[in-house]
């Protein structure tokens, strides 16, 4: 028997779980499902973000300069570009830096970069535009003006992604966030409901505690723990399929492109993150259920 407060809390929480296994299991499953889908969505989103950086920072553009441009010429182009009103920042990058960055970004595709005797890339200017209401128009006019400068080989902007593609991505992302939010909220509510049920099912027990002078926190803590236990078990249930997906992604996609980037490449970290989110959700649920009960 638990002779310390925490011993008591834990014994009561586990006992409560065993007393009402059905609602508790439903709660665990709902938490597991929401955590799985939400984290799947997050990982997918992160993967896309890694592959398509422009998608999420449409204010960036790259101006590739002609190879062998003199230092003075380069400086002149840079000054001109930096002087435009809609340019916020303009940085020069040598061919080596450009190559290094590509290597870093596409870490999985080393073989592409091997066998390069000499750097085929031109020097470039990395430009960030000022935020404006009509970014599309700003990018278009930037591209036009930049192309008309002497010494410029090519201009790459987020324009490369058509507005429709970006709109579609944005819609998908919005829907994903909405769905994930709905799932998380419903798992909070279902934990709250299960905890409330357990609480009123054990009225006899806490009425005795009120009489013997137990503080409200002592009375509520086992029910908090019972809720958190549901969240943690749900997280463990979600970890298995999610780990499967991460492994599969690691096989199919180049390493470093997918989950490894989130730091979820090893099972321990993934489980830790899931348990933290599961415990957080269920704590919110328990808090919702126990907010107004047992006040003197």
């Amino acid at each position: 028997m638990g002779l310390s407060r925490w011993g008591y809390y834990l014994a009561r929480a586990v006992g409560g779980f065993r007393k009402n296994p059905l609602p508790a299991s439903v709660s665990v499953l709902v938490v597991a499902l929401s955590l799985f889908l939400t984290w799947l969505f997050c990982l997918g989103l992160w993967g896309i973000y890694r592959v398509v950086p422009h998608l999420f920072s449409p204010s960036k553009a790259v101006v590739y300069l002609e190879k062998g441009l003199s230092v003075q010429e380069t400086e002149r182009v840079k000054k001109t570009v930096a002087g435009w009103s809609f340019v916020e920042e303009c940085r020069y990058k040598s061919p080596e830096e450009v190559l290094e960055e590509l290597r870093r970004r596409y870490a999985g595709w080393d073989d592409v970069f091997q066998g390069l005797d000499e750097n085929p890339l031109p020097p470039a200017l990395e430009v960030r535009l000022r935020a404006s209401d009509d970014m599309e128009a700003a990018l278009r006019s930037f591209e036009e003006q930049a192309r008309s400068l002497g010494g410029v080989q090519d201009v790459l902007t987020a324009q490369a992604w058509s507005a429709e593609t970006r709109r579609l991505m944005r819609t998908l992302m919005g829907a994903g966030i909405f769905l994930a939010g709905a799932l998380l909220v419903s798992s909070i509510l279902i934990v709250a409901n299960t905890v409330r049920l357990a609480f009123y099912g054990r009225r006899d027990e806490w009425e005795v505690l009120l009489v013997v002078g137990a503080p409200p926190s002592f009375i509520k803590m086992p029910f908090y723990l019972e809720g958190i236990l549901q969240g943690v078990l749900g997280a463990v249930c979600a970890a298995f399929p999610l780990w499967g997906v991460v492994r599969l992604a690691a096989e199919v996609l180049p390493p470093g492109l997918w989950a490894g980037a989130l730091g979820l490449g090893d099972a321990g970290a993934l489980l830790g993150v899931l348990i933290l989110t599961g415990a957080g959700l269920s704590w919110l649920g328990a808090r919702l259920a126990l907010r107004r009960v047992v006040s003197y």
Binding site: G2, S4, R5, V208, V212, P215
Partner: peptide, 12 residues
């Protein structure tokens, strides 16, 4: 019998 003692936070 232990319950009021545990609730009062007495050492085990």
């Amino acid at each position: 019998v232990a319950l009021p003692l545990v609730a009062a936070g007495r050492p085990p």
